[in-house]
Design a protein around this nucleic acid. Structure first.
Lengths: 170, 170
DNA sequence: CCTAACCCTTGCATCAATGCAAGGGTTGCT
DNA sequence: AGCAACCCTTGCATTGATGCAAGGGTTAGG
């Protein structure tokens, strides 16, 4: 007999390792948002991320992507427009749909979060033995590949998480 | 001279890989909470996780751990108590502090989420080449180690750090 | 043209989270 | 005792997210 025992055990161990890593990553995510001055809420940030990654959108598409009622999309955008992070304008070509894009300020905010996030991760990585770094890269890519496309949840694709909100330390 | 160029490039690549993996993991986290029937909000779930991992707490400690005003802790607990997920009782030893513990129902809910989470991760892992699995485990552990103590954020930290099936308990 | 289909916004209502301040309890120290 | 220090709760106010339904706009197809 092979040892299914051992195999299972190893898998289990891996799962633990992944969970531990996830915990760290979530911490990083939260930090990077918390550090975003101006403080937009999680949802608002999510909107920004979606728009940043999907190019100009109309409200209905955004609502769809977020899985909420259109009216909510409208109002969340209201807030972002009010803060000068989002630009909402009529599309001359088809005035039924409007165009949502980030303002420069909005783009900067998203970029900032992303940058902080990358920096934080980098900071962790450089503390690892070089050898592990290489292995990690490959293995991680495999892992992400296995994960396939995550649902529309992403706060991370550009930047963020859905979990703990920004209340870090006080 | 080494090639700092190449080294930097590789690090960059790794960072991307980590981000990609993070995205997947966050997706998993979100799913596992969303799938929790009864649906408690994220914050409420956070409270439950904190209590689950930190044993009986008094309200002030919880507020502290969450980084919010004590009154909020009280009211969030109100909701959880109302839903039968949390047990709040006087501590006979010192009636200034009360005792917050999960009810069996609450514990089950948390366990369920964790279990779903582990299962989801497992499902991804088994799709990876065996060789990568092993490398991933070691590298990931290094990574988590480099991460050190994550902030109080946890949403993730219940079953993971050590116990093989810590989460299996109900 | 005119209507059906679609999109966006608004008003109404609700619920969760959050902070501040006031108030009543309990304990410990003097 | 008595007071100071803490703790927990409540009332008040605000902000954000959410859904539903109604209403006005715009476009494509008859």
């Amino acid at each position: 007999m092979k040892e299914p025992q051992a195999a299972a055990e190893e898998l289990h161990e891996l799962t633990d390792a992944v969970l531990a890593a996830a915990r760290v990553l979530v911490g990083v995510a939260a930090q990077s948002i918390a550090a975003a001055e101006g403080s937009v809420g999680v949802n608002q940030f999510r909107v920004m991320v979606i728009i940043a990654s999907r190019g100009p959108l109309h409200s209905a598409a955004l609502a769809e992507a977020m899985g909420v009622h259109p009216s909510n999309a409208t109002r969340t955008c209201d807030r972002l427009v009010a803060t000068g992070l989002l630009d909402r304008r009529d599309n001359p070509a088809d005035r039924r749909h409007l165009q949502l894009t980030l303002t420069r300020k909005g783009q900067r905010l998203v970029d900032g979060v992303m940058q902080r996030r990358r920096a934080a991760i980098n900071k962790l990585l450089v503390r690892m033995p070089q050898a592990d770094r290489h292995r990690l890269t490959e293995a991680l890519n495999q892992f992400a590949a296995a994960g396939g496309e995550p649902p529309e949840q992403d706060l991370w694709s550009v930047g963020w998480t859905t979990g703990p909100d920004a209340a870090a330390q006080s």
